[in-house]
Design a protein around this nucleic acid. Structure first.
Length: 432
RNA sequence: GGAGGGAUGGCCGAGCGGUCGAAGGCGGCGGUCUUGAAAACCGUUAGCGGGGAAACUCGCUCCAGGGUUCAAAUCCCUGUCCCUCCGCCA
């Protein structure tokens, strides 16, 4: 949600900045401002009537106490009743105006930060830095969807039979490799980057999903639980982690607060058919270790840089080549003010592919979710800034290891940092 | 799933139709006293939305949403959550 004061005072500026995003927002913006004006017109009238009713009530009480019970009293009650009718009518109107206002406010995306390049697609993103060299093979590297089944660690066919397309089964060493990655990442972020580990619910309600910005606009991306439940499978641990402090006022002295969680993530991927149909890249269910930070406004941009480096550190230690890209206005997510994508090199795709996305949403989510803090633990509550980043996507990391660490004979060398988590195993050998 | 009990300010807890945004206590903050601290005492201490340059002022808020009433923390209905007992269960 955008800052209402900013909208009232700098509407044209907001309009221009929203225009740099891909969608059209003028209609919603105009509806929002109209509802806001109506609301502010109704309010004084409502309050005058409520005040009048209150005074009448007090007069009735006093008259009663004085033993009055004749026409005077009846007259007072009559005027009270009239105020009541006016109040009820105004409240009804106010209710629908506020509903309209909130509906519009919830569909408007965040404003891009001034440092974000203006652009319309992926092609306008700006590379910030690279780390590592793509490996050179003296043979034709194979994609992971061939390597995985050949190694006997990924099974796509059985997953389809028990669930549907775009699910996968990891077996034996494959399952252990995923678990090793999860544990390695959690240990790194908790042990060296000072994040607090959380195991949250894997289902979230509509209020939580509205707080992060997934609802109301992107319901088609979510799996909703059937039956009489107001619950969805989480599309990312960002949802529970950002809602950990929903409707709370935090002690500013404890900021920045950092949380890390491993969770499976569930996405319907509606409308993405034909894209990345092969392999583990785009699944309905995938594992992810997620980083979330709550920061005071003046430190959030430093925390953003830091959080991005925390995610990069995972790839550095795994020995995977990657680059970090600053997303342009047209490629950013709904809630983000600024986003770095970390893209890992995939020999099977002969391209860098997203493995992490690190965003500062500033107060956008905090306003929706009612997350505030008090400086020094006292004073006026202000909205915090919330940040999130993958640290990193487990399935894609597994893909990157298979494709980057493959050898001519089809075996895969396990990165050293994972071997302790794999019972000392150094190489995954193909099934004979 | 069945039967009861509950939800009040940062926390505990009173109030059970009228002047209650709410007694009292704890905690926090400021002060008096003290070389300093503790104790004691005094004062102060919610959020949101309007208006105002400000002092300030008006309204809303006692789990949430409806209702009754001139008037609701207080009465009625619905929902959510928590507790106790029974059943079931990893």
């Amino acid at each position: 949600m955008l800052d209402p004061a900013l909208l009232r005072e700098h509407l044209d500026d907001v309009r221009a900045r929203l225009e740099t995003r891909s969608d059209e927002h003028n209609a919603d913006l105009d509806r929002l401002m109209k509802a806001d004006r109506e609301r502010r017109a109704i309010l004084p009238e409502l309050e005058t009537n409520r005040r009048a009713r209150k005074l009448v009530g007090e007069q009735v009480a006093r008259a009663r106490k004085a033993g009055e019970n004749g026409g005077k009293l009846a007259e007072l009650m009559q005027t009270g009743q009239e105020h009541g009718a006016v109040i009820k009518a105004l409240e009804t109107r106010l209710g629908s105006v506020e509903e309209e206002r909130d509906a519009c406010a919830h569909t408007l995306p965040n404003l891009p930060h001034a440092s974000v390049p203006v652009g319309s697609s992926e092609a306008d993103n700006v590379e910030i830095r690279r780390h590592g060299e793509p490996p050179r093979f003296d043979f034709d590297p194979r994609p992971h969807w061939e390597l995985g089944p050949a190694l006997g660690i990924i099974d796509f066919e059985r997953a389809v039979r028990m669930a549907a397309a775009r699910f996968a089964v990891l077996t034996g060493t494959g399952a252990r490799l995923a678990r090793a990655l999860i544990n390695f990442m959690l240990d790194l972020h908790t042990g060296e980057h000072a994040y607090t580990e959380i195991e949250p619910p894997f289902l979230a309600n509509a209020a939580a999903l509205t707080g992060t910005g997934n609802l109301p606009k992107f319901e088609q991306d979510l799996f909703k639980v059937a039956g009489d439940w107001d619950l969805y499978l989480i599309p990312t641990a960002e949802v529970p982690l950002c809602n950990l402090h929903r409707k709370e006022i935090l002690d500013g002295r404890l900021l920045p607060a950092r949380y890390v969680a491993y969770t499976p993530c569930f996405r319907s991927e509606a409308g993405s058919y034909g894209k990345d149909v092969r392999g583990l890249i785009r699944q309905h269910q995938f594992d992810k270790v997620e980083l979330v930070a709550y920061a005071a406004p003046e430190t959030s941009w430093d925390v953003h840089e830091e959080l991005t480096l925390h995610a990069e550190e995972v790839l550095k230690r795994l020995g995977l080549p990657y680059r970090t890209v600053l997303l342009c206005t047209g490629d950013m997510g709904f809630a983000a003010s600024k986003t770095y994508d970390i893209e890992v090199w995939l020999p099977g795709h002969d391209a860098y592919r997203e493995i992490s996305s690190c965003s500062n949403t500033e107060a956008f989510q905090a306003r929706r979710a009612g997350i505030r803090f008090r400086r020094d633990g006292k004073g006026k509550p202000e909205h915090v800034h919330t940040l999130n980043g993958s640290g990193v996507a487990v399935g894609r990391a597994l893909v990157a290891i298979l494709e980057n660490c493959q050898q001519r004979d089809g075996s895969v060398v396990i990165p050293e940092v994972l071997r302790g988590y794999m019972g000392g195993l150094e190489v995954i050998e193909p099934v004979r």
